[in-house]
């Protein structure tokens, strides 16, 4: 049973990103509406190894990383009903859970304040179906955008998003001025914005 589950997900990883995301959305729906454990385990199989890799970065040993993976995946189970397909991909949503957990658990002494973005959004005029359609387009575009970002900008993004380093820490690590770190981040975001065709 477990082997079958894993094979399905592995096969999908060879397919188009859009198909994979559609599968995740479907699994999330089953988790939220039916409390479907098999659907959850498929999500675990795909995301847990990436989450562990993500959690291993900042000063975390394998044991702590697995504790955080467990905590993140339990949050996915608990909050599945809060996931809104029109607001972003499942991958992005799970990234924000992992990021928040890392802020909370690893940097507990000086946490970064966060807002639950969805709490503040006005109801959209677009029918939810349109939002989801637009979002499906976006999933592959973000991947395309990241692929087109020059290496020196990509490096800054990795140090920031994955290694959890502040801009000033990145400047020290790379021995470049803080202003250069910021300008590379601006360029990377500008590239993403052009590809996603979003407003400034």
């Amino acid at each position: 049973m477990l082997v079958a589950v894993m094979t399905t997900v592995e096969q999908h990883s060879k397919h188009d990103k859009v198909i994979l995301e559609a599968e995740f959305r479907n699994l999330m729906k089953r988790v939220a509406q039916n409390r479907d454990r098999a659907a959850f385990e498929k999500l675990f199989t795909h995301f847990a190894p990436r989450l562990k890799s993500f959690m291993m970065r900042k000063n975390a040993n394998a044991e702590l990383a697995e504790d955080l993976v467990q905590e993140a995946m339990i949050a996915v189970w608990n909050k599945a009903g809060l996931y809104e397909p029109g607001k972003g991909s499942v991958t992005t949503w799970i990234f924000t859970i992992a990021r928040n957990l890392r802020i909370d658990r690893i940097r507990r002494e000086a946490p970064m304040p966060l807002v639950e973005l969805g709490d503040y959004d006005e109801a959209s005029d677009d029918p939810p179906g349109d939002e989801v359609l637009a979002r499906k387009q976006e999933d592959s575009l973000v991947s395309k955008a990241l692929g087109g970002i020059p290496e020196e900008q990509r490096q800054i993004l990795l140090l920031s998003f994955v290694e959890d380093m502040a801009q000033s820490e990145i400047a020290t690590r790379l021995n470049i001025p803080l202003g250069t770190v910021k300008s590379r981040m601006r360029l990377a975001y500008g590239h993403l914005r052009r590809i996603l065709e979003i407003q400034p």
Partner: peptide, 18 residues
């Protein structure tokens, strides 16, 4: 949009065996 970039960066990390 920036979080979507974070999601994609996490997605592309090498797997760590759980």
């Amino acid at each position: 949009a920036a979080e979507a970039l974070g999601g994609e960066l996490m997605e592309q990390l090498p797997d760590a065996a759980v």
